[in-house]
Simulated scan of single mutants.
Amino acid sequence: MHTVLVVVQVLVAVALIGLVLIQHGKGADAGAAFGSGASGTVFGARGAANFLTRTTAWLAAAFFASSLGLAYLVNDRTGRTSGSVTDQIETPAPGPVTEEPRLIIPAPAEAPAAVAPQAPAPAEEAPKVPE
Rank of each mutant, 00 (worst) to 15 (best):
M1G: 11
H2C: 10
H2Q: 11
T3H: 06
T3S: 09
L5A: 09
V8H: 07
V8I: 15
Q9R: 13
L11D: 11
L11Q: 09
V14A: 11
V14C: 07
A15M: 11
L16S: 10
I17D: 00
L19C: 08
L19K: 05
V20T: 12
L21R: 10
I22S: 10
Q23N: 08
G25I: 09
G25A: 10
K26W: 14
K26T: 14
G27K: 14
A28Y: 07
A28M: 04
D29S: 12
D29E: 13
D29T: 10
D29P: 01
A32Q: 10
A32H: 10
F34H: 07
G35P: 00
G35N: 01
G35F: 01
S36I: 07
G37Q: 01
G37C: 02
S39Q: 08
S39L: 04
S39D: 14
V42A: 09
F43E: 03
F43L: 08
A45Y: 02
G47A: 02
G47D: 01
N50Y: 15
F51N: 07
T53H: 04
R54T: 14
T55D: 09
T55M: 14
W58R: 02
L59A: 06
A61R: 02
A62I: 04
F63P: 00
F64Q: 07
A65M: 07
S67Q: 00
S67H: 01
L68Y: 07
L68Q: 06
G69M: 00
A71R: 00
A71K: 00
Y72E: 04
L73Q: 11
D76C: 04
D76N: 12
R77M: 09
R77S: 14
T78A: 08
G79N: 03
G79Q: 03
S82T: 14
S82G: 11
S84I: 00
S84L: 12
V85A: 15
V85T: 13
T86K: 09
Q88R: 14
Q88V: 08
I89L: 06
E90N: 10
E90A: 14
P94K: 07
G95P: 13
P96I: 12
P96R: 13
P96E: 14
V97A: 10
V97I: 15
V97Q: 14
P101F: 02
P101V: 05
R102V: 15
L103N: 05
L103E: 05
A107D: 06
A109P: 04
A109H: 03
A109Q: 02
E110S: 02
A111D: 02
P112W: 03
P112N: 03
P112Q: 03
A114D: 12
A114Q: 10
V115K: 13
V115I: 15
A116H: 04
P117K: 13
A119C: 01
A119F: 05
P120S: 06
P120E: 08
P120F: 03
A121T: 09
P122D: 03
P122A: 05
E124N: 08
E124A: 15
E125R: 09
E125K: 12
K128S: 10
V129L: 13
P130T: 06
E131P: 15
